[in-house]
């Protein structure tokens, strides 16, 4: 129990000390995960909409596959990305291993199925509402997807935020493809793993609480911004 208290105290101490290294790590965590969320949303949201409005032969299978991908262990994703981007792998020439870019790619793969799946569910429900109207108005598939994505934007924001949550707390993949290099690829989660390895639970917990605070702050800020944008309550 006392370890927990030390963790909380440590978190405050860390934040208030304005330690440059800590802020660098926080910024890098945000940079990696926010970029990954943007890219994963750019793929996942239209994919979710597409799956909702299209009927095709392997639709059920595709959705089942997507749902299964949500449970994919990040370590496996990390390993696959590592093998692809290793100098002796097929994409080795880009020299991306152990860079933030590799971490972003791994996170996109981890987050995208989650975003697509939640988006698909939200859009499928809205599509059930809109179906008759949009068919009656002779919309093209493209117009349907755009309309549904726009009108479901609040639920889709939740999908993206869920992706952010999974990404910011993820450690297995980014450790492998990022290498946890100090000042280059070290992020909050890999720093926590490192300190835990050193048996420094107080510091590890402190960083853990910083991570939680960061995740909460991002969620609050995003919700604030999206509320002020329109008065509605969708």
């Amino acid at each position: 129990m006392s370890d927990l208290w030390f963790g909380v105290l440590n978190a405050f101490r860390l934040i208030l000390s304005f330690d440059a290294d800590l802020y660098e790590i926080i910024l890098r965590s945000l940079h990696v995960t926010v970029t990954a969320v943007i890219v994963a949303s750019a793929i996942g949201l239209p994919l979710g909409a597409w799956l909702a409005v299209n009927r095709f032969r392997f639709r059920r299978l595709t959705i089942a596959f997507l749902n299964a991908m949500m449970g994919l262990p990040p370590v496996v994703v990390g390993l696959i990305v590592y093998i692809l981007f290793s100098r002796s792998g097929p994409l080795g020439v880009f020299g991306l291993l152990f860079t933030p870019t590799a971490m972003i790619i791994a996170q996109v793969i981890i987050i995208m199925p989650l975003i697509a799946s939640i988006a698909h569910q939200a859009i499928r429900d809205l599509w059930a509402d809109y179906h008759d109207l949009l068919i009656s108005l002779n919309t093209t598939k493209r117009q349907r997807m755009i309309t549904l994505i726009w009108d479901a934007r609040r639920s889709l924001l939740t999908a993206s935020l869920a992706g952010f949550g999974r990404g910011i707390g993820e450690v297995g993949a980014i450790m492998i493809v990022g290498g946890n290099i100090d000042h280059v690829t070290r992020v909050l989660t890999s720093a926590i793993a490192l300190e835990t390895g050193k048996g420094d639970f107080a510091l590890a917990l402190g960083l853990g609480f910083v991570l939680i605070a960061l995740a909460i702050a991002v969620n609050i800020i995003i919700h604030r911004l999206s509320k002020t944008e329109r008065a509605g309550q969708w």
Binding site: H31, T35, V39, F94, L96, I104, V108
Partner: peptide, 16 residues
């Protein structure tokens, strides 16, 4: 294209 996009996004990080 996607890879290129991600690379551009992440080049905002200073390289040593």
């Amino acid at each position: 294209k996607l890879l290129f996009f991600i690379m551009i996004l992440s080049f905002s990080w200073p390289a040593q």
